[in-house]
Amino acid sequence: MNSNKAVFDSLRNNLKVHYDGKRFSYKSKHDLKDKSQLLVLIRKFPEGIAVIDLKDAYPNVMDDLQALKAVGQIWLLSNFDSQEDIAYPNDPRMVIKVDDDLKQLFPRD
């Protein structure tokens, strides 16, 4: 790569490649370590963040996305235009717990 300037410059300017002066290495778009950091990042993007941008953050990120979805902390929705999944934060201020006595006051059909 050092002998081919075009390849060298292309790698050096690539956002997903880190060059330390001696060698190139891959770096993920978002530097995340675990599910809690993943949730913080998703909450920073109320308009949604593409799952493809998160896939390489750490090895089990997809499992953590599904776990966050299962407990209602995020929404995973498909974008039909691009066929990509988008992760949206679920507003934590809106979690409502309803008392069983209160539920009995409202008829269910």
Rank of each mutant, 00 (worst) to 15 (best):
M1Y: 00
N2V: 00
V7I: 15
D9V: 01
D9T: 10
L11A: 06
L11F: 15
L11C: 10
N13F: 03
N13E: 12
N14Y: 04
L15P: 14
K16G: 09
V17Q: 02
V17I: 15
H18M: 03
Y19T: 08
D20S: 05
G21D: 08
R23L: 05
F24V: 06
F24M: 02
S25V: 06
Y26R: 03
K27S: 07
K27L: 06
S28T: 10
S28M: 00
S28W: 00
K29P: 00
K29G: 11
H30Q: 06
D34G: 09
D34V: 04
K35A: 13
S36N: 14
Q37P: 08
Q37R: 02
Q37Y: 05
L39C: 06
L39Y: 13
V40W: 02
I42D: 09
K44F: 04
F45Q: 08
P46G: 08
E47N: 14
G48D: 12
G48V: 11
A50W: 12
V51T: 13
V51Y: 04
V51C: 11
I52H: 10
I52N: 14
D53T: 03
L54G: 09
L54M: 05
K55S: 14
A57V: 01
A57D: 07
P59F: 08
V61M: 03
M62Y: 11
D63L: 04
D63T: 13
D63N: 13
D63C: 02
D64R: 01
D64I: 03
L65Y: 12
L65N: 10
Q66L: 13
Q66G: 10
A67P: 01
A67G: 05
A67I: 05
A67W: 04
A67F: 06
K69Y: 09
V71M: 04
Q73C: 05
I74Y: 03
I74T: 06
I74H: 02
W75P: 00
W75S: 06
L76Q: 08
S78L: 12
S78C: 05
S78K: 13
N79K: 01
N79C: 11
N79T: 01
N79S: 09
F80V: 11
F80D: 15
D81L: 06
D81Y: 06
S82A: 04
S82P: 02
Q83M: 12
Q83T: 10
E84P: 02
D85A: 06
D85L: 13
I86N: 02
I86T: 11
A87L: 05
A87Q: 07
P89W: 08
P89H: 05
P92N: 09
P92I: 07
R93P: 01
R93A: 10
M94G: 15
V95M: 06
I96L: 14
K97W: 09
K97Y: 13
K97D: 12
V98W: 03
V98G: 01
D99V: 12
D99E: 13
D99L: 10
D100P: 14
D100C: 04
L102W: 11
K103D: 12
K103L: 15
K103S: 12
F106T: 07
F106I: 14
F106G: 01
F106A: 09
F106E: 12
F106C: 04
P107L: 09
P107S: 12
R108E: 15
R108W: 05
D109P: 14
